[in-house]
Design a protein around this nucleic acid. Structure first.
Lengths: 218, 218
DNA sequence: TTGACGACCTAACGGTCGTTAGGTATACTC
DNA sequence: GAGTATACCTAACGACCGTTAGGTCGTCAA
């Protein structure tokens, strides 16, 4: 099912307006204030709000009036970015939860996280080069235990963490690298667990240098 | 003068509680929420609020519900990240300074900028795929007019902006794409200017999808 | 052709909102 | 004792709140 999980123009417009309102007034708008701004009725706004909530862009608080919560800016002048801890390297060989190395942080826009919990890993190796993930890149991973076909996930196979593209197969899953020199992994039994899904890639060039490892020939 | 212009204990207590509420919920409380917290009625709270307003500790906004405004309430922004404006697309065909499109922002760690001025561009096209820069990626560019051999730069050739790897040649420069299907550009004369140097790449996956354009065959 | 969305609508519900009016009691100062 | 401020109360107003139910119209994919 080809779900356009992304936002429609109207939804995006509404979300932007709400963010702006919060920025400006220090509190979220009421449903009818949104409606007035767009010249539509409160029930129509409610539809939009439900759509935005379903898609994870906002949620409803437990307070009565004005209980809209947009994850990345609950307070007036909080910045729209978060610092994600880098918890290790991949391939790493341990479940994420067990890793405690503090390897610094990477900044990302909060709205790529959608309020979910996330971590970052430094990529080692070239198994995903053809998807534009190079050795040394940081991958931002949102914690979740399920994923759709074709998603790039961090998976744990018998205590070995790996970054691959996920495909379902009869009786198991296929984990496919984005590198034609490497073979896909078929998992039919044993310990297999999805740790999270890749939501962003960040590359930081070192000073004076350029990208360390261009793809090169062939 | 019998006027204790200062706050009474009850008023101070109330003010503190309201500040706390805002900090915690990202919006001011309703009159009755304050009353519930202290076990008093809304009209009693209203008296307190009027006193606090008269003494200049808060004021009433023009919005309906929750329109309390406490002047000096803002959290200092100590985060180590910055939001870089996305000023357009590349190839774009205009000097950066001339572009005014507001296309949102991208978050990066402040230390990748090293204090310099920076901007972001959304990449269009595949001219740098082999350097791991895909169509749709955001490139963070630090403004500078010089660069070293091998650096990836945003350059302006006769009012056309382009993202290429820079090499010096006798009598000019060579701008080399990272795509073996494209030819390098040799610049020996005419308008040529470096706009800045690529310091970071950020890729944001859209929900439900994965990377749009893996490299594929060849 | 059906069905799922998106983007609106009218109409209404019951509850909560800010606010007002008018009252009681305590305290302190002129 | 009069005057003023604080700190509460009961009772209510009308407006606004979130939310629900049920409908229309268009689009786009299966």
């Amino acid at each position: 099912m080809p779900r356009t999980t992304d936002l429609s123009p109207r939804q995006r417009e509404t979300l932007e307006w709400v963010k702006n309102f919060i920025q400006e007034h220090g509190m979220p708008p009421t449903v009818r204030e949104i409606g007035d701004a767009f010249g539509i009725k409160s029930s129509s706004v409610f539809d939009l709000l439900k759509a935005l909530e379903r898609k994870g862009y906002m949620r409803r608080g437990e307070l009565g009036a004005r209980s809209l919560i947009i994850e990345n800016l609950s307070a007036p002048d909080e910045s729209g970015c978060a610092e994600i801890p880098v918890v290790g390297r991949i391939p790493a060989g341990q479940p994420i939860e067990a890793i405690e190395h503090d390897c610094g942080t990477v900044a990302v826009s909060k709205d790529v996280l959608r309020g979910g919990d996330a971590f970052a890993l430094k990529v080692e190796g070239n198994s995903m080069v053809e998807a534009g993930v190079l050795d040394g890149d940081y991958v931002i991973v949102r914690k979740q235990e399920t994923a759709d076909d074709g998603d790039i996930v961090v998976a744990l196979i018998e205590n070995e963490a790996t970054l691959k593209r996920l495909y379902r197969e009869s009786g198991g899953v296929r984990l496919e690298p984005a590198n034609r020199n490497m073979a896909p992994i078929h998992v039919t039994s044993g310990e297999f667990k999805i740790q999270g899904k890749l939501v962003s890639v960040v590359r930081i060039m070192t000073t004076g240098g350029s990208v360390e490892k261009p793809l090169g020939g062939q």
